[in-house]
Design a protein around this nucleic acid. Sequence first.
DNA 1: CTTGGCACTCGTCTGACCGGAGTGCCAGCA
DNA 2: TGCTGGCACTCCGGTCAGACGAGTGCCAAG
Lengths: 339, 339
Amino acid sequence: MLDDRKLEVLRAIVEDFVSTTEPVGSKALAQRHGLGVSPATVRNDMAALEDEGFITHPHTSAGRIPTDKGYRLFVDKLSSVKPLSPAEKRAIQSFLEGAVDLDDVVRRSVRLLSQLTRQVAVVQYPSLSRSSVRHLEIVHLAPNRLLLVLITDTGRVEQRVLELPATLSDDDVAALRSAFGSRLHGARLVDAPAALADLPDSAPTAIRPVLTSVMTVVLETLVDQPEERIVLGGTAHLTRHLTDFPQTLRPVLEALEEQVVLLKLLGEVNDPSAVHVKIGEENNVEGLRSTSVVTMGYGPDGSPYGGLGVVGPTRMDYAGNMGSVRAVARYVGELLAGA
Amino acid sequence: MLDDRKLEVLRAIVEDFVSTTEPVGSKALAQRHGLGVSPATVRNDMAALEDEGFITHPHTSAGRIPTDKGYRLFVDKLSSVKPLSPAEKRAIQSFLEGAVDLDDVVRRSVRLLSQLTRQVAVVQYPSLSRSSVRHLEIVHLAPNRLLLVLITDTGRVEQRVLELPATLSDDDVAALRSAFGSRLHGARLVDAPAALADLPDSAPTAIRPVLTSVMTVVLETLVDQPEERIVLGGTAHLTRHLTDFPQTLRPVLEALEEQVVLLKLLGEVNDPSAVHVKIGEENNVEGLRSTSVVTMGYGPDGSPYGGLGVVGPTRMDYAGNMGSVRAVARYVGELLAGA
DNA sequence: CTTGGCACTCGTCTGACCGGAGTGCCAGCA
DNA sequence: TGCTGGCACTCCGGTCAGACGAGTGCCAAG
């Protein structure tokens, strides 16, 4: 059905359309890409591609543009992730290494990604639940108020104030601190419930009830309601595509302002072993149906810290953006693993 | 020069233009606003207003539109801050009171402001330097590493990791903790240097050198480099004004992504005693010259916690937006004072 | 100082027209 | 069977002229 030349035609259409934003016609295509066949032949191939749903017509006498399905085929079969140039790699590395703390790493990554790809960039903070505990500090603010400060191996520092159901003495708090500290140090947060399971039994009976209730609150706040944070940048790039999103810019911006949406975007696939691409209608998110999303997890395979990526028009440079996303994800992963 | 009727004409022009987005002509204006004079008279007044630079002509046969100077006069003399309806006030109050912590207060305020005004909203976290210390915790992470956790009276929690020039024992850290704690508790951060001034002298000679160096680092990180945080929301509203900012949307978005710019915006005037308005060219920020900015400080008079406001086209509902900004600023101020 | 009248300006809308890019189809050729 | 050149057709986009109308500026009169 689709022989090599037809695929080659599709690739040419995608490449030309992406770089010119204009529907591409048979004649220009035939000569510019040295296919060695006449425009008429190209037209026949185009008709076939259109029958299969890979390209369309804005109107009768216009050139062809790829459909979502066409982009999908292009991404899967016709292009490969474009590695960055050594110069770009060096630039990324030195830029990221200048970061002084996690916030800075995240901010710089966003900026980097949006500049490299000239698209909107999205970076998720290392997920709490998949990080492990470097340090857990318990501060006794008031008789019935504790401050928990959690520092993870990725450098994320999270704090919560707990209102206690009962009052505690300083000694109680010291006991809590050492009990939690010894059990949680080095443990991943998802494993926290297991690590703490034996705690009530092994504690002195006197503080057992209060300890149980503190434990419940701790687990609830740190494990069950893990706070995900996501940073967004480069929204100004969207304005370059006013032609792509005629009146669609509004919903796109609205969607991007919803943390939930972003989480969904990055949460669905943040596997650090490969770059993921969602094209147009493939996006479950209403409002991003006219965009493509390129994402990747960062951190160790199998247990990624978080995800990052870019959002842009379906008409985007997939190979290049995938390369940039992959490169940044890798560097960020390494950086945080070494931190 | 400008008698009452001319001012009335200016007000009518501003009001009509703001609500219709269309240049307003003498005839429509004369009858719609019941000025009791003929269109010809209005035309004469318009000519005078134009001579004075308060209004212009897009072209010969179009109606008039206000200039920045015209809006300025309108804001200063012709309109008053519009108080919110009781229903709106209740809504604000109950929405803000639902917040569980400072992050939540800020997020909700942004959302609230952008929904009330249908503009881009900007909210600054309570400034560190002007807050006072509720609690300062020092955690000994490693022999030469400390974690400082600062909790302010406004509920802001800030942490820094310090690399020390020397190693410390746990006892040293305990000494530090109590020394800093007793001196800083309740003090404003700007007063921290003074509060700590006598510290080296009163300390045991043994730890004096290390204490001095820690002190320096602490003051540097907390006082000299106070981290300002600003949250932005409702950028999608900008798309409603594509006609107002033809190709100007780009620079506006870019400017709004710069923390520095936002700080400048809110920093210049965050006086909680009144609403401030910057109109068009009055903005020092390149890129926001086509917008107006309505801001107000929140917190106690004379020592505000921070600022908040909205950014929109010069063609905005000043009275309404000023009312919303003022209301939200007051509630936020009260909320944080009571926290 | 206000008013009605009037000529004038100028942007916008409409419809007609044209050129060009591109297609689809067909018949011929390897 | 598959490629090619040719040709008629479609339809978009730009340009141009003309009509319309909103709005102005100015002037003379009340």
